[in-house]
Each structure stands twice: as C-alpha cells, then as structure tokens.
Design a binder for these strands. Structure first.
Lengths: 155, 155
DNA sequence: CTAAATGCAAAGGTTTTGCAGCTGT
DNA sequence: ACAGCTGCAAAACCTTTGCATTTAG
C-alpha cells in the first residue's frame, strides 16, 4: 500500500527529472529507471535487462545500456567501480586511500592513518564484519582544478 | 642512485615472494612485476604491457594478464574497481557508503553522516579538491560471517 | 627430467555503434 | 513534422582459454 504510492510517486519524479533534463520520456526509460531502483542493491546491466523484459519483452539490451548511461550522465543514478571497463592494478599494498578526479579519471593515492580503521556505525553493525577501510574521495586533481580555475576567471 | 638500489632490492624481494608462493620465477614475471610497480599510479593491463614490451619485445599480452592475476591472487598487488568486468549501477543517489563482502562479492549500503565529509589530510592537500567522500569497508557480509563461524566452530 | 609457464591464435563475453523505422513533443 | 529514441545486427573491445613449445626447479 504505502509501497504502491511510493512507487507511483517515484515514477512521477522520474518523468519530471527526464523532462527537466530535456530528454524524451519514453515508456522504456521509465520502466528501466523503475526496475533499476527496485533492484535494490547494485544491479548490473543484465539484471536490469531481465527485470525490464518481464514487462517489456521486446526491449533490447542496448536500449538498457543507453538508458543507464543516460541516467548516470544526468546524475539520476550512480555507477560503481571504474569508469572504463578495464581492470586496473595497484602496486601499493599498504593501507592507503584514493582521490579520484571526476574530470580526467586520474586516481591518486594518499595516506591517512586516521582513515584506516573506520568501521560500521552502530546502526549498521548487523550488516557484517569489517577487515579494512578504504576512503575514496571524489573531486578534481590539481591539474583539473587549475584548468577549471583559469576557464572560470577568464569569463 | 638510491633509486637503483631500491629497484634492485625490490626485484630481489619480488623473486623471494614468488619463490615463497611456490611458483616459478621467470624473467617475464619479474619484469612485469617491476614495471607494474614502476608505473606508479594505477596502471591497466595495456599500460603494463607496453612498458614490458620495451624490455621484452616478444612478450604476449596474455602472459601479462596471467601474471597480473597471479600477483593479485598472491597479494603482491591489489586490484581497483569491481571484481567481475561488468559495470554496476547504484540507484541510491544520496550520500552513503559501502560494505563489500570479500567472500561473495555482495555490496551493501549504509549511511553514516560522519563519513560524508571526509577530506584530504593536510599532508596531501595539494593533490586536488574534494567534492564528496565515499567509504568502502571490506570484510564479510552477515551471511558469510555466519558461514565462516560454523565452519570454524565445527573443527 | 617433469611440471609449469610462455606465446600464438582463436574463442568468449560485454559493451558500443550504424542505420532504418517508430515515437514523444 | 522533426528531433530523438528504439530495435536489430554487426562490430569493437577487453579478457580468457587451448595447445604446442620452451623453461625453471
């Protein structure tokens, strides 16, 4: 009951957000967005695709890909993991943390012992046990900060 | 000067670590391990491959793949990003953090406002600017904690 | 000498792209 | 009506795998 209203409200909100972004509000996109939200955890493309197909059996996989990337670009959903589909390796095996540049994608290491032993808050203690903590800061690398500053100041 | 000794010591350490792990110490593996460490940042496979080729022009790409995965399994290097090569999406756009189960790979969300505004330590302030902070805890989900506990207690 | 590792090539799986037809605005 | 979106299929991409040959222990 409450869930139904919530679901409807959510779809309304989805449609408004797509309209605001100036893209077309298609049935496929609404279903894809709803199923992505309903998937709860952190669905991959195939999971969303299967859920959407139950409602729209003719939807194609690439439509799901395109919609999800569109949503991510619009900030309606986030992405987990690296941007490009490649695996990256980290020669630094000691405890350290990362600053990820959202502009150029560069990943820089830094150390902060105070971050090494963060744990679950009491309210989430039941989720599991923690071995190590890793902080990922998102922002701009020094290079992109400089680039943005000069562009802003030249206006 | 110091760098040369460091480099040599590192290779010695690499060889010892491979020997300890009971795998063969091949020229290719040593070069791949050295170049991965030398790449500094967070190289992808192609970056390592290109660096290694300058020294071993006949090395094949799959040898680099196999070596890097071997090193990761042995704990000599870490990996960045998700384990499987698929992209995952996150419908939760509010600030939140993740507990990643190293056993089954499940990713669970939790909220902790105290983590939302972590920033660079003073010693690393020059790396760039920070927009948001995201904490990734690695450990076991409740299900895998239970599974492990029962296995341990049954001994 | 034996088991393991390499290099080559081919296969596998995921994600992207080109294009004709359809749909929202 | 028109720009934009969908679906189909093929391509591009990264990664893994099978096998004969070479190499480390």
């Amino acid at each position: 009951m409450a869930a139904d209203n919530e679901g409807r409200d959510q779809v309304e909100g989805f449609a408004a957000r797509l309209r605001d972004a100036g893209v077309k509000v298609t049935h496929q996109r609404l279903v894809i967005l709803r199923e992505t939200a309903a998937a709860g955890s952190h669905p991959d493309v195939e999971t969303v695709y299967r859920a959407v197909r139950q409602e729209l059996p003719t939807v194609s996989l690439d439509t799901v890909y395109r919609a999800l990337h569109l949503f991510a670009d619009l900030g309606l959903i986030g992405t987990l993991g690296l941007s490009g589909g490649r695996v990256r390796f980290d020669p630094n095996t000691g405890p350290h943390h990362h600053l990820v540049c959202s502009q150029c994608g560069e990943i820089q290491d830094f150390e902060e012992p105070g971050f090494d032993h963060l744990g679950l808050p009491a309210s989430a203690a039941g989720l599991g046990s923690v071995d190590s903590a890793h902080v990922e800061l998102r922002g701009l690398c020094a290079h992109c900060v400089r680039a943005r500053r000069s562009k802003t100041s030249s206006r």
